[in-house]
Design a protein around this nucleic acid. Structure first.
Lengths: 135, 135
DNA sequence: AGGGGTTCCTGGAAAAGTTTTAAATTGTTG
DNA sequence: CAACAATTTAAAACTTTTCCAGGAACCCCT
């Protein structure tokens, strides 16, 4: 099922702005709302920051993208398997690291909590240094 | 080693404001900076919000308390073993759930990343409903 | 295909909520 | 008591949400 279909199936309209946000995130990496807005301003003249935030929230509810909070901001990424978001304290990068979270989820489920989402943020030294914009 | 000693050992001054913040957190639960400020205003007349934030950052760096981000705010808790912070989507409570994170940490360490901190935020239904202030 | 109508979405400005900063004052430690 | 760190107050910064009028997407119909 492609992204357009997934939006329609949920009664959501397929707008150019939503597709533009998806296009940015589908290339991989981690972005704040502001970063997506700055990226899209170049190709989507007139798009507004509130539209970006509206689209992000809608796409997140539709589970087409994920979000997590770190460093005082909300970060968005294209949907993918549960994983660790590793924040490199030396390089400011955010890396995806595949880890198995199924044991953890079932352990919490067994305590009477129905797990709806898991956000794992790890702070660590990854040996690199310097800044990188595309996170 | 008590808290006063731990502050002194790190070259930090023991101020009434820092001790007041520790007193709130040591009773357990999860608080935002604003909630701690509101709590302390009753017993520490004249304390300011920025002092609370300064103290929280200092205490966090000294590893006497933990913090994690969720729901658009930073939440603080007294230091304890790594665990899952479960946000109940039905009751707005935040619960501590003990889970073993050692496998996860060593798995990430083995990929060349030196783990400095783990923040595990889980969203789930815990069957309760209604609001609770002390989280 | 094309048009009409309904519903939902967008854009711009402003507000809200959280956290940080600046500069002067006060407090803690040796 | 001197040296230096921490607190206070106010304002600003930063991210995100809200409001609503105008516009666009979708559905149905021909």
């Amino acid at each position: 099922m492609d992204l357009v279909e997934e939006l329609r199936n949920r009664g959501l309209k397929v707008t150019p702005q939503r597709m533009a946000v998806l296009r940015v995130l589908s290339e991989g990496g981690h972005y704040t709302g502001e970063q997506i807005y700055e990226t899209l301003k170049k190709t989507e003249p007139g798009i507004s920051l509130s539209t970006v935030y509206n689209a992000l929230e809608t796409l997140r509810e539709a589970r087409l993208i994920n979000s997590f909070e770190a460093r005082g901001a909300t970060w968005y990424e294209f949907r993918k398997e549960p994983h660790a978001n590793v924040i490199c304290v030396d390089s400011d990068e955010i890396l995806d690291v595949d880890v198995d979270l199924s044991n953890l989820t079932s352990s919490i489920n067994s305590k009477g909590i129905k797990v709806k989402g898991v956000n794992l943020v790890v702070y660590g030294e990854c040996g690199k240094s310097g800044e990188s914009f595309h996170q």
